[in-house]
């Protein structure tokens, strides 16, 4: 039994998602290990983002179960929860392929929105907030402290009061991860975090993700096309093609799996060897 199945944070069981006649995900099962960095890879259109959308409540799966277990033992069935409750109670955070920051708000405010729930609670629906009552001030100070911690780790502390849309692209990507972390997630889903980053930024991202994995109770599930990122940082790789799982294992195993090579090169399994010989792999 592989290590990620021993104590998984998320068990995806027989997940199926149909859009009319189109089967986007077909009977997909895999485990996301606790504390691991798990990569979900596959050619374009393989259904990776659809899996994310099911996990974060954007879509209601047609069939299947998504069972999330916190480190303290609380269990959630994500397919039955509305999106804001998945974020609030099940503590799943995500980022998108395209950047979805609140551009008109400052960097710090973006991180404060992510801590909306404890603040809302402390401020009695904000009415205590208008008058700056001590209870609210304390909660606010705590939230700022947490935001500062993450801003320091993504090197954006100097830009805290700038509008988020003024940041350069790479910094916006880092800010999105910081914002997701401010929700205090158990599972962090990153959709192509390295897209559009230059090699230096990409290396910084690897470092940040490793730091999160090592220092926080957060497991990471990421979609990524950049194989240097995937192979370097992930503990476990799941490969999708046409909505089905074609390979599952550690990076070394997946890299050498004929089915994966076939999917990426676009040929049938039987032809892989011929193609490999032709291209000299």
């Amino acid at each position: 039994m592989a290590s990620w199945s021993e104590n998984p944070i998320l068990k995806v069981e027989h997940l199926t998602m149909r859009f009319g006649g189109l089967v986007a995900i077909d009977d997909l099962s895999f485990d996301v290990g606790r504390g691991d960095i798990t990569a979900l890879i596959g050619p374009n259109g393989a259904g990776k983002t659809t899996v994310f959308n099911c996990i974060t409540g954007f879509y209601k799966p047609t069939e299947g179960r998504l069972k999330l277990r916190h480190h303290d033992g609380d269990t959630f069935l994500l397919e039955r929860m509305p999106d804001f409750k998945i974020a609030r109670h099940a503590k799943v955070a995500r980022t998108f392929q395209n950047i979805r920051l609140f551009g008109g708000m400052t960097v710090l405010e973006n991180l404060m929105v992510a801590q909306h729930n404890p603040l809302m609670h402390a401020s009695a629906f904000s009415f205590a907030g208008i008058f700056s009552l001590p209870r609210f001030r304390n909660a606010e100070a705590k939230a700022v402290e947490r935001a500062t911690y993450w801003l320091e780790h993504v090197n954006l502390i100097d830009r805290a009061d700038d509008p988020a849309s003024d940041l350069p692209y790479g910094a916006q990507r880092r800010l999105e991860i910081a914002r997701a972390m401010c929700t205090g997630p158990e599972l962090l889903c990153l959709d192509e975090p390295a897209a559009g980053l230059n090699p230096r930024e990409s290396a910084e991202l690897n470092k940040l993700l490793r730091y999160i994995g090592a220092n926080h109770e957060t497991s990471i599930l990421l979609i990524e096309h950049d194989m240097s990122v995937v192979m370097e940082i992930s503990d476990h790789v799941v490969v999708l093609d046409y909505g089905e799982k074609i390979s599952d294992g550690n990076p070394e195993k997946v890299k050498n799996d004929p089915a994966v090579i076939a999917a990426y090169l676009g040929v049938d399994d039987e032809e892989v060897e011929t193609v490999e010989q032709e291209v000299g792999v």
Partner: peptide, 28 residues
């Protein structure tokens, strides 16, 4: 003050810009 300084105001502005994303950050 409500809009600028409180968590309700912040989440309101967040919802204005991107309702789905706000929901994903736990905003009802």
């Amino acid at each position: 003050l409500l809009i600028a300084k409180t968590s309700l105001g912040r989440s309101q502005r967040a919802c204005e810009q991107d309702r789905k994303m706000a929901a994903l950050l736990g905003v009802n």
